[in-house]
């Protein structure tokens, strides 16, 4: 029955992403008691060296020019073809910008159930349960997962990558690309990396991070002053960057940067899952927010339920004085 677990390995320009190892770690944990084996599917072009480093029981390597850069249509066709061929009871896909294009589409095409935004997979009363983060992280949904085909898209950072220790060495099997890869309607044109930033927030020891609660661009000045007083740099959650108040290089979170400073002072950040993904490993997190139920308080070490301006101004007074 439960023979195979298939993991979609994620790579960009020949670099395996961290979440891939996290997925393989989970897959190994789920595979062991069921006697399943873990297959990892590596898609790309000229990535055979990378395939040899993937710590799965079997690495399935598919190379094609259309897979050189990420191409959502090519990846979807490839994963669908491999899933049909190997018939895994479980497919694990990262819930990333790349994985999100693939997971729902492949699950729909195959008619297999999908649990997205998964942060935990556990055995409960003999039943496998995948837990999904919904409603901005305020509510969790427990979803039973059967053994007759399911797809789970897993949040990056939800699992440890250590369980993916590379033993035994991967067996690599080269797969022929499906014919559909020759007639794609999507073309990947190129990648653009961000320009060097004035400040590298990933190297900052202390960060004053601001969110929607800051209300206006003018109020950023207060955050700048606080940061100066603390010897910190200013970072932000996504909405402020989208509004153009701060450059992309200051954005913390899933689509921004992952930071691990000694101090993360979060002002007016509610803590959407996408933000927490980028900062939960900070050594000391102090959060100020008006909503006592804000998810930021679940990862913070210290919390203050208050108007951020009152606290920030009082702090600024002390630092300035």
């Amino acid at each position: 029955m439960a023979e195979r677990i298939l993991v979609l390995a994620e790579q960009l320009e020949g670099q395996l992403t961290d979440v891939t190892l996290e997925l393989i770690g989970v897959a190994r944990r789920l595979a062991a008691p069921r006697g399943s084996t873990v297959d990892a599917l590596v898609l790309g072009e000229g990535v055979s060296a990378l395939a040899a480093t993937v710590p799965a029981d079997r690495t399935l390597l598919m190379e094609h020019p259309a897979l050189r850069l990420f191409n959502p249509e090519a990846a979807q066709r490839a994963l669908e073809a491999v899933a049909r061929e190997t018939s895994p009871w479980l497919v694990l896909v990262p819930n990333t910008s790349l994985g999100m294009d693939v997971a729902a589409a492949v699950a729909t095409r195959l008619g297999w159930p999908l649990v997205a935004y998964c942060q935990a997979i556990e055995e409960r009363d003999g039943q496998l349960v995948a837990t999904s983060q919904l409603f901005g992280g305020k509510i969790l949904a427990d979803c039973p997962v059967g053994t007759d085909h399911a797809v789970i898209s897993v949040l990056a950072g939800a699992f440890s990558s250590e369980a993916a220790a590379p033993e035994p060495p991967a067996r690599i099997e080269r797969l022929a690309p499906p014919a559909e890869l020759d007639g794609l309607r999507v073309r990947a044109v190129g990648l653009e990396r961000p320009e060097a930033a004035d400040v590298d927030i990933t190297r900052a020891e202390k960060i004053v991070a601001v969110g929607r609660g800051i209300e206006s661009k003018e109020n950023l000045e207060l955050a700048e002053e606080l940061a100066e007083g603390l010897g910190a740099v200013v970072a932000a959650s996504r909405p402020l960057v989208d509004a153009g108040w701060l450059p992309r290089s200051r954005q913390v979170g899933k689509s921004g940067l992952k930071v691990k400073p000694r101090l993360y002072l979060a002002l007016g950040i509610s803590g959407a899952p996408e933000h927490l993904e980028g900062m939960r490993d900070a050594e000391l997190i102090i959060a100020v927010n008006t909503d006592p139920k804000a998810p930021i308080f679940d990862v913070a070490h210290y919390g203050v339920v208050a108007d951020l301006f009152e606290v920030a101004e009082a702090l600024q007074e002390r630092l300035g004085g």
């Binding site: 159930p113 349960v129 999904s132 919904l134 992280g137 305020k138 509510i139 969790l140 949904a141 427990d142 979803c143 039973p144 997190i285 959060a287 998810p295 308080f297 679940d298 990862v299 913070a300 070490h301 210290y302 919390g303 203050v304 339920v305 208050a306 009152e310 606290v311 101004e313 009082a314």
Partner: peptide, 21 residues
């Protein structure tokens, strides 16, 4: 398809600082 919804466990919750600013 889900078996239940629940609030996240409060285990990792922050120590709350109270009082005046």
């Amino acid at each position: 398809k889900l078996s239940r919804l629940r609030a996240p466990e409060a285990a990792g919750r922050a120590e709350m600082l109270t009082g005046s600013p």
